[in-house]
Each structure stands twice: as structure tokens, then as C-alpha cells.
């Protein structure tokens, strides 16, 4: 799966999760740019990401993800290793 497709699928997931069709994910998008993405539902979002891409991330990795670009890289990495 290419980077563009990951962004596309991730955007769709975020729009559905946060009930906001205006969400456009970019590499530097972070939690503070998306209304509702906070500590409350961060783990639910990550589980939804894992389910969508059929990957599993270490919990310790989650803290190191500073933005969507790094999340996409992590997904790419998991997909490549599979």
C-alpha cells in the first residue's frame, strides 16, 4: 500500500471517527489541529487505525508519534515488515 493510499484511508477513518468531513490529513497534522483528538480518545483512534490497516503497534511507540506523518511512516513500516 502506497503512502498516498494510506493517507486516503487514514483521512476517511478520521472523518468517520470525528464526524467531520472537512478533515484533511497532512504530514504535519497533529492532535491539536483536529477538534476532539485528545487523550480521551487517542487510544480508540489508534485501535481503529490498527484495525483498518491490520497492523499492531507497540504502546510505547504511540507516545513517540508527534504527527500524522510519523503515524503514516509507522503504518508503512508495519506493512513492509509483514
Amino acid at each position: 500500500m502506497g503512502t498516498a493510499e494510506i493517507y486516503e484511508q487514514l483521512t476517511e477513518l478520521f472523518r468517520e471517527f470525528f464526524s467531520n468531513d472537512d478533515i484533511v490529513l497532512k504530514p504535519d497534522t497533529s492532535a491539536k489541529d483536529i477538534e476532539g483528538w485528545d487523550s480521551f480518545n487517542h487510544l480508540s483512534v489508534m485501535v481503529a487505525v490498527e484495525t483498518r490497516f491490520n497492523v499492531k503497534m507497540k504502546t510505547s511507540e504511540l507516545d513517540k508519534l508527534a504527527n500524522v506523518g510519523e503515524l503514516v511512516s509507522a503504518i508503512e513500516d508495519k506493512l513492509e515488515r509483514r
Binding site: M46, T51, L62
Partner: peptide, 18 residues
């Protein structure tokens, strides 16, 4: 089927443990 509850439980408890 929408959210992997077991994975969510695992993740929540792992984070709490951290």
C-alpha cells in the same frame, strides 16, 4: 467488529501500566 475491544483494553492497561 468496529473497534477491537480486546486490543483497546490491552492498550489502555498497557498505557496505565506505563
Amino acid at each position: 467488529k468496529t473497534v477491537n475491544l480486546d486490543r483497546l483494553l490491552e492498550m489502555v492497561l498497557e498505557k496505565q501500566q506505563m
